[in-house]
Write a protein that binds this DNA or RNA. Sequence first.
RNA 1: GGGCGCAUAGCUCAGUUGGUUAGAGCGUGCGAUUCACAUUCGCAAGGUCGCAGGUUCGAUUCCUGCUGCGCCCACCA
Length: 729
Amino acid sequence: MINDKFLKPYNPQETEERIYKLWEESGFFNPDTLPGKCEKTFTIVMPPPNVTGVLHMGHALMLTLEDIMIRYKRMCGFKTLWLPGTDHAAIATQARVEKDIYKTEKKSRHDLGREEFLKRVEAFAKQSHDTITSQIRVMGASCDWSREAYTLDEKRSLAVRTMFKMMYDDGLIYRGSRIVNWDPKGQTTISDDEIVYEERKAKLYTFRYSKDFPIPIATTRPETKLGDVGVAVHPDGKWKQYIGQTFEIPDFAGVSLSIKVVGDTEVDPEFGTGAIGITPTHSFIDWEIAGRHALNKDRIVINEYAKMTEKAGPHAGKKTSEARESIVEWLKSEGLLEKEEEITQNVSTAERTGGIVEPLPKLQWFIDVNKPIKTREGKTLKDLMREAVKSGDIKILPNHFEKIYFHWIENLRDWCISRQIWFGHRVPVWYRSKLKVEDKKDEEVYVGVEPPRGDGWEQDPDTLDTWFSSGLWTFSTLGWPEKTKDIELYHPTDVLETGYEILFFWIARMVLMTKYALGTVPFRTVYLHGTVRDGQGRKMSKSLGNGIDPIDVAKKFGTDAGRMALIVGNTPGTDMNISEDKIRGYKNFANKLWNIVRFVIENTQGEIFEDGFTGYTETDAKLREERHEMFVDVTKDMEEYRFYMAAEKLYHYAWHTFADKILEESKVIFEKGTDVEKKSRKQLLIHSLDKILKTLHPFIPFVTEEIWQLWKQPKGKDGMLMVAEWPIK
RNA sequence: GGGCGCAUAGCUCAGUUGGUUAGAGCGUGCGAUUCACAUUCGCAAGGUCGCAGGUUCGAUUCCUGCUGCGCCCACCA
């Protein structure tokens, strides 16, 4: 008899949680307990969501795409592993907690102290973790929770320390004083990728150091000029006659300068005045030029708080902006200011704190990307990254991102991995002297996986860039540095699916780490999805109030509807728009499917599914053939990552071919047809429905599983749709 | 400044290697319907596939140029 449930519309709220539990308890998310003899594996390691917040549409898209691949491969008989996890997201999480604490208690992290502060961060991370993982379940993600990992848990910490030690021993990690991006607001260094540029109006001043200095200099930051040690001109430019000369400036706004003119091809003789005032300590390019010409690199005039130092003479203690004003005043009064023009320039600001980035020389830990590696045939890390994609070992979808990837590698500088924040992996380095970090003379340094023995050791206070631990993700999650069976079986992973915005942050760094440590690629295929935007193509944001919460969607329309809406029309690498209207359309689809089943059940009472049935009428044989071709097509789409197309084809077939045409015609047959026609049609219907449910399952797993259970009433858990066989081989 | 991409129906977008009348969803109009459908079904209107050239028997699809839009990268002082 037909189940009473079919007399009412499909109710996802009543269904989804129950079905997820059924799946999870079956143990089939775990490849070790998955039935099947096939030894071929298929692995995805989940990009770990940050423990800072809640699930958003981007996560929902990621989870849906990955779940589709995983469910599809599982049905194709692969030993399928989808390994979930979360990311401690060092700076983001610390900043978030600092803000909360300041808001409620008006205290800074320094007021609380390192230990207490870390306790608070961990408590927050724990709570946030629980929210995130339960939300991942709501999305229907069929991942193996028994292998769940966290970028800051014990195993991953061991992996991080081991990697650091390895790279240090190979001379790839070094400590050095170099110009870094310093965020005065967050009091930490940040990587190039954590900078956002803001366009601002600025003034470009053209001036001379003194009346008899021959070359005019342009700058937007006169306060840094107190730190100048030279002027660079093009070797063949109009100022070449001065190359090699040194000018003593006894009084430049209260300090004395010694300016040497050097010739450097990096100077554009056509631009500006054709000369650059060299401030080695507060500009990247100047630091490099100074290095090439052995200019003094210790004239630091701005400190970590963006204030002037003692070396700025009378300006010491002033904010940079104040110093700028008074120097401009001084230049004017001395008649040294030649020009003042309005320009727009890009100011570097820190992504997380919004602070204006101050380039400063600091003693930091770096990864050398240009050093030949003995264990890798003398190749550099850059070489390894480039070769992984160039050789075709890694394919990036869509293809044109490969160009962007190569371009990024060409411009890559040494990677600064130390951060002056507290939350994260502590740098596994210990020093044995009380001397300040800035002064490494007489200092004993120990680098190790475990702390050193003996007294007087003090660990480096810094933590590692969060992408250092993320870089190990595909293999640290599988147990590295231990030689585990998981690594042997599941690494390299098959697909890395993520948003294109973290191609450099993360993907490139995983390639770097994996090629270096294991000699293999971390994954075979990179599938990049675009940004999820609102119905009008705007970014979802709190201030616009146009965000759509995937959990709300699940409540209102059902997870299946949200998943389908995210997939149809979503091509890799392209942003997509989503609106409630679109989602509503797919809620109706779930209900349509529900009613299709009701019709089929009611009209095929007593009919048994006959495998290999051959008694089809000519009409039905043709319909069967068309159906088969469609499924072959869809299978090809699945293999070639065209999920958007597979989903649409299946949707169209189920609704507009199967329901609108075939079911409508069946009404006539069941009323007036011969017994042979009826029999043929009943077999066609149950075979078609069987296959429609199977092929739709990766996309809309809940409603298809629920229908399957009600229709087929399988005895054991092996009869679940989740582990049914994909109908096309 | 360098790089990458996009421009197709009122809106949001598909169109898989060039091949008959270019598709979907939403929206719009007309009609039907308590017979699986908190509805659904049928029918319809609507596109010189950004512009200009080129390759080809044939171009929305390939090439060149132009225009408009978007994204990423960047230490022009």
